[in-house]
Write a protein that binds this DNA or RNA. Structure first.
Length: 814
RNA sequence: GCCGAUGUGGCGAAAUUGGUAUACGCACAGCACUCAAAAUGCUGCGGGAAACCAUGUGGGUUCGAGUCCCACCAUCGGCACCA
């Protein structure tokens, strides 16, 4: 075979010299913005996952380019983050240095893949010319009331020595290092994602081209629940407790009220007699990690506060308890406990001998074993007796509203996004804390707040930036008095929540993005990336888009119109690839042996793009053989004479028909990221062409077909087809060829087979002229000898003819 | 526990959305070329002698079901003391 890695190199060089992938916003063609989630620049060479993600996405972009779009397909680097910092701690090489080096390596390797990126439209989140604008966005959100600081309970990872967002806590462990997460109270910056909870949820309905699974995950994550608030006043009328409940119908069964140990009310309401015990309990729970606290089967614990409140619905006095089965960060952190109709309350009440009163029975009035948690009919509920649960909720809520002690409301699991990180390698939060003026945003003219180079950043829980006096000490931009800078850095997800807005104009020193341009370019038409970001990056980006829209910068609601998740290539053993399991596979040996295109094609053909699967290289050889067969065919065509005068034979027409079918099918497939079937179609076309070569060949038909065939393959195998294209005497790149147009006239003709069935079971097929109108086809079927025989053998009860498709007889054998 | 996805040959997988199940490959077998092998090319390839039977299992709707409906089994994923 002629194709090899050397051919890749030759064309990569030429493409670069000729600048064929240079992008310009000035074009008469319609825009098409497609991008992949940008990678983190890690030290090692590109792994299989990168290839599986980026090379098909590149093929897609190439296909769109050939289909007449002005395709914008940028690539950048998500360059801030912990790995570089941890690497630095280990080796002493600064994050800046190692990151820059890694980016250079990665860029080179991406080019070896044969991608059509224009590096003039690229970005690196760790560069001041980028993070200046991340900081600017922060200040805009701050001014718009969407960023705020509060003392709050946060997820603390003692491994990474930093705070984590809720989204970064997986099963109670740090998403990055697996350390059990602790809870800590700290002053933290937040973005007000909750302000958009409802829109983030309802907006999902409009995202028709997003995977259902991803929308489902976001729906769960947002966790909307409709219920009611109810206010319990204390017996002495010196405090109030507001609880959220979805089961206001059970309110007459409240036998106590519980609040979370961390809740601010605890201190306020606890009586002196109970204070010691309560303090002990609160301290004990605070020592537990989330995992310990929520361990399955863990017995519920709690303690009485000494306080009593009044149930506004029946005026009963009930005790107030503290228990760690109540979460402070959901609802109000306070719960009305109805042991008869809630499993948790039942367990707790049983343990502490609190009353259990049945107030819901089944709809037919039957008493059910407790705890009975389904909807039913009210009992033991005074004037509400006999009401069905759902109407009771409405009526009780409206009664409470009249006395100002409750109302229907909604609650979301979604929390505000915690964005402060006590680490070094990130964008400094652009805030100056002035003793007089408070937190003041750094004015645009003073941005970026540069990340200092020489800082000791060994993690010890104190933000490394605090240790740099030069960094910390500054003047308040408002009053000019001495002040201190915020010492924390932004969660890297802030950097990636807006990067698609920067790509179209990455070198702009005046603004983050050009309003007019970005409103034309966005939303991104197709976004490709892993589904592990469903409840992180993809929520943050959506939030940021909506926030910037409401601040007047954007005119669209969603960042990404269509979303595709690539699957995961697993190790040969079916497990996730990891160095510790020793099941990693490097793409390099395949690239060296076969060249980039064979490998790209193999990845696309051997796996469903959205599914992935366990790695196997069984078919790589056969892909290489496919390339050889193509080379042979092209060699044959190089000597093709031009016999255009010849009229088309039936065989010629059949070839053209198959070609047109292939064009149609491959286009549809690539649009849906179904590269496996697209390549299968191309193989069918090759088989057809080789079959055609056995008979009388019309050289012009052959050459046209083969050239179209190369065009069809070129998005998937850019180097290989470029080489063959030039061997056919073409001087311009195949990349700038048009994707072949379907000729309807050539699509028709030939014969087609109509299945003939008895009772839905296939008997045989009848071949008919494909161009015949449906009723003529039916005539031909009926005239067919085999069909006539069926009439003799069977009693025909009914005849079903789906025009031009199938002929079925409902019949009994005579 | 709640929500969701998937299940088709020895294997990776197709099936225009209710209309010829197993496309395209891999593996395998036979033949040709060769002294021979490799490479290449051709042929076959779900089961069954056949009628027929086969898309995780059992029902249902339909002239017709891999596709729609109900129940179940298995695997994977998301959420999970969310009041």
């Amino acid at each position: 075979m002629n194709y090899s890695k050397e051919i890749d190199k030759k064309w990569q060089k030429k493409w670069k010299e000729e600048g064929i992938y240079k992008y310009s916003h000035n074009s008469s063609k319609p825009k098409f913005y497609t991008m992949e989630m940008f990678p983190y620049p890690s030290g090692a060479s590109l792994h299989l996952g990168h290839w599986f993600n980026f090379s098909p996405a590149d093929s897609f972009a190439r296909y769109k380019h050939m289909s007449g779009y002005n395709v914008f397909h940028p690539m950048g680097f998500d360059a801030f983050g912990l790995p570089a910092e941890n690497y630095a701690i280990k080796t002493g090489i600064s994050p800046k240095e190692s990151t820059e080096k890694n980016i250079e390596t990665m860029k080179r390797q991406l080019e070896e893949m044969g991608v059509n990126y224009d590096w003039d439209y690229s970005l690196q989140t760790c560069k001041p010319d980028y993070y200046k604008w991340t900081q600017w966005i922060f200040t805009k959100l701050y001014e718009g009331g969407l960023a705020y600081k509060k003392n709050s309970l946060v997820n603390w990872c003692s491994g990474c020595k930093t705070v984590l967002a809720n989204e970064q806590v997986i099963d109670g462990e740090c998403e990055r290092c697996g350390t059990p997460v602790e809870r800590k109270k700290m002053e933290q910056w937040f973005f007000k994602t909750t302000a958009y909870a409802e829109e983030l949820l309802t907006g999902l309905d409009k995202l028709e081209d997003w995977p259902d699974l991803t929308k489902k995950i976001q729906t769960n994550w947002i966790g909307k629940s409709e219920g009611a608030e109810i206010v319990f006043k204390s017996v002495n009328n010196n405090f109030e407790i507001t609880a959220f409940t979805t089961r206001l119908d059970t309110v007459s069964g409240v036998s106590y009220v519980v609040i979370a140990p961390e809740n601010d009310l605890v201190e306020k309401i606890t009586t002196n007699e109970q204070m010691d015990e309560v303090k002990k309990y609160v301290e004990a729970t605070s020592r537990l990690t989330d995992i310990e606290r929520m361990a399955e089967g863990k017995e519920k614990t709690g303690v009485f506060t000494g306080a009593y409140v009044i149930n506004p619905v029946n005026n009963e006095t009930v005790p107030v308890w503290i228990a760690d089965y109540v979460l402070d960060n959901y609802g109000t952190g306070c719960v009305m406990a109805v042991p008869a109709h809630d499993e948790r309350d039942y367990e707790f009440a049983s343990k502490y001998n609190l009353p259990i009163r049945e107030v819901i029975v089944s709809e037919d009035g039957e008493s059910k074993p407790l705890p009975f948690v389904e909807y039913g009919k009210l009992a033991n509920s005074g004037k509400y007796n006999g009401l069905k649960s759902k109407e009771a909720i409405r009526i009780i809520a409206s009664d409470l509203e009249k006395i100002g002690q409750g109302r229907l409301t909604v609650n979301y699991k979604l929390k505000d996004w915690s964005i402060s990180r006590q680490r070094y390698w990130g964008a400094p939060i652009p805030i100056i804390n002035c003793p007089k003026c408070g937190a003041v945003a750094v004015p645009e003219k003073d941005l970026p707040v540069l990340l200092p180079d020489n800082v000791e950043f060994k993690p010890d829980g104190v933000s490394p930036l605090k240790k740099s006096k030069e960094f910390i000490n500054c003047k308040c931009p408002k009053c000019g008095e001495p002040a201190e800078r915020e010492a924390e850095t932004l969660d890297t997800f802030v950097c990636s929540s807006w990067y698609q807005l920067r790509y179209p104009n990455p070198k702009d020193t005046e603004k983050a993005f050009d309003k007019d341009l970005i409103n034309k370019m966005c939303p991104v038409d197709v976004y490709v990336g892993g589904k592990e970001h469903a409840s992180m990056h993809l929520i943050y980006s959506r939030f940021m888009t909506k926030a910037l829209r409401d601040l007047g910068y954007l005119k669209f609601d969603e960042p990404f119109k269509k979303l595709i998740h690539q699957g995961l290539i697993l190790g040969p053993d079916g497990n996730k690839m990891s160095k510790s399991k020793g099941n990693t596979v490097s793409p390099d040996i395949y690239i060296d042996k076969y060249g980039s295109d064979v490998f790209r094609m193999y990845l696309m053909f051997g796996f469903d793009f959205t599914k992935g699967g366990p790695w196997s290289d069984k078919g790589v050889d056969s892909m290489s053989k496919y390339f050889e067969r193509i080379e042979k065919l092209v060699e044959r065509v190089q000597n093709a004479k031009n016999d255009s005068e010849k009229s088309l034979s039936q065989r010629d027409k059949q070839l053209l028909r198959v070609k047109n079918q292939t064009i149609k099918a491959m286009g549809n497939d690539i649009d849906k990221f179904k590269f496996n079937t697209a390549i299968a179609r191309s193989m069918e076309l090759l088989n057809e062409i080789n079959d055609y070569l056995k008979e009388d060949v019309n050289e012009k038909v052959l050459k046209d077909t083969v050239e179209d065939y190369l065009r069809l393959l070129s998005p998937m195998a850019p180097h290989f087809t470029e080489e063959l294209w030039s061997s056919l005497g073409h001087n311009s790149s195949i990349y700038n060829e048009e994707w072949p147009k379907i000729k309807e006239s050539e699509l028709s003709g030939g014969t087609k087979e109509i299945p003939v069935q008895i009772n839905g079971k296939l008997k045989f097929v009848v071949s008919v002229d494909a161009d015949l109108p449906a009723d003529k086809i039916l005539e031909e079927i009926k005239a067919n000898d085999d069909v006539k025989k069926l009439y003799d053998e069977y009693d025909i009860k009914k005849e079903i003819y789906v025009p031009g498709k199938i002929y079925n007889l409902v019949a009994v054998r005579k």
